[in-house]
């Protein structure tokens, strides 16, 4: 029920997710970390929806979840395709756009 600590938690999760996104080698690992970020954002919405008693925040959470799911699905499809083509799922080995 403590809202301030919850807020801090969401920030914490966010930075963790950022760290993960930057430093994971495996593409799926990156996506997992991204998932974490989205989740922290949703949590934020929830907190502030409660603070300002605005139902719109909660709506946004629903939408956020749906959108995240959709985007993740596509992300995974790409990873699978990538794996099939390059036989690797490490993000730093796929640097065709180098230069």
């Amino acid at each position: 029920m403590e809202l301030k600590p919850l807020f801090y938690l969401s920030i914490f999760l966010f930075s963790l997710g950022l760290y993960g996104a930057l430093s994971r080698r495996n593409a799926l690992g990156i996506l997992i970390a991204l998932e974490l970020i989205f989740n922290s954002a949703n949590l934020n919405f929830g907190i502030f929806s409660k603070v300002w008693a605005n139902p719109l925040g909660v709506m946004t959470i629903i939408f956020g979840i749906a959108l995240t799911a959709a985007e993740l699905v596509l992300g995974f499809a790409i990873v699978i395709l990538l794996f099939r083509l390059r036989k690797t799922s490490n993000a730093d080995e796929v640097s065709i756009l180098k230069g």
Partner: peptide
């Protein structure tokens, strides 16, 4: 699922964390 440059990235994340 190894990690690349943990220190720099960690520092970075910490920075963000503190700022926020």
């Amino acid at each position: 699922n190894t990690v690349r440059n943990p220190f720099i990235n960690g520092l970075f994340a910490l920075l963000i964390f503190l700022l926020l």
